[in-house]
């Protein structure tokens, strides 16, 4: 049903789709909760008798109806976000919109605030939001607990995750997924982690093993919004393609754009990830501010040729 609405929207234009939606709205409609402050139950499939519906942005954004009845909502919508770490503001006035099925890559020099942005979106206690808000699927999550965000569909691949002594990776996966052992084993096999299930989480793992373990945890979690913090760092050439493919799958890059719903925000220095999946938008962060927005490949090329110098001057947001 959801697919039908979208296909109609894509193929026959919005008026026909509109008609179809009015009778057949539910799966792709979202309640306009941030307008009337009524919390959304779940990310999708909500409709409201008032007749004001929220539509996912992204692919259909160009076709959106600039009317009263339909409002386009991004999967992630960050407005005027300011974040402090240890009483020092490190993110200033961040504005970011990521729609359904979109992948954004976040670039920028070391210490520019990229990881802090991911941590703030995930809700870690050391990252205090002093101003602005984070909306996820039309619902404000600025002050939601970390696990509530995870349950809502946000997943994070840590750059340097902590070691949890005594906790076996396999046990953690079972605790977080609830899937049967066979299913977990199959995921683990796909990223060559089967022999690690009996080991303490991250204890003595090499750089590449940590990344594979993180990917595996995300695969089991099935997030809709995937944040990856330097997925390529410390990974050897052989494993890079394995990780690249796994990330592609997480983001449903194997699906046609119309069907793709998973979105991503990926921090990368090398851009290796672009060899495995097409990113839609490149973002450049400098000194806690998003300075540029553009074609990811072009931006990467620019950085390779001229370094981050341009970043200071760029104001194309």
């Amino acid at each position: 049903m959801a697919l039908c609405s979208w296909l109609l929207l894509m193929m026959t234009g919005y008026r026909a789709a509109l008609a179809a939606m009015k009778s057949n709205v539910a799966p792709y409609m979202r309640e306009r909760s941030w307008v009337d402050h009524k919390p959304l139950q779940g990310a999708r499939g909500e409709s409201k008798s008032m007749g004001v519906f929220l539509l996912p942005c992204a692919a259909g954004e160009a076709l959106m109806i600039p009317g009263e009845n339909y409002i386009c909502v991004h999967m992630l919508e960050i407005t005027d976000l300011h974040v402090e770490v240890g009483e020092k503001e490190i993110l200033h006035d961040i504005n970011l919109k990521i729609g359904d099925g979109e992948t954004h890559v976040l670039m920028g020099p070391n210490g520019s605030g990229k990881t802090s942005l991911l941590m703030a979106i995930m809700g870690f206690s050391g990252y205090k939001v002093t101003q602005g808000k984070i909306m996820y699927n039309g619902k404000e999550i600025t002050h939601l607990a970390v696990n509530e965000r995870a349950k809502a569909g946000i997943g994070l691949m840590f750059q340097r995750p902590p070691t949890v002594g005594g906790l076996k990776l396999g046990k953690l996966l079972t605790a977080t997924s609830g899937e049967p052992k066979e299913a977990i084993d199959a995921y683990a096999k796909a990223v060559h982690m089967l022999t690690f299930l009996g080991r303490d989480v991250n204890k003595g793992f090499s750089g590449g093993e940590i990344k594979r373990s993180e990917i595996l945890q995300l695969m089991v979690q099935h997030p809709d919004f995937v944040m990856l913090d330097e997925p390529e760092s410390g990974v050897d050439l052989e494993n890079i393609s394995l990780i690249g493919a796994a990330i592609g799958k997480l983001l449903e890059k194997d699906l046609h754009i119309v069907h793709r719903k998973k979105s991503g925000l990926i921090i990368t220095h090398t851009g290796f990830i672009l060899d495995y999946l097409d990113a839609d938008v490149g973002l450049m962060m400098c000194d806690g501010v998003i300075k540029c927005r553009g074609n990811p490949r072009e931006m990467l090329k620019e950085i390779k040729e001229r370094g981050y110098r341009e970043c200071m001057e760029c104001q194309k947001v």
Partner: peptide, 14 residues
């Protein structure tokens, strides 16, 4: 705290 939040990021309650 970082270990607690790491597991919370996987969906476990505090």
């Amino acid at each position: 705290q970082d270990e607690i939040e790491y597991l919370m990021a996987r969906g476990l309650s505090e």
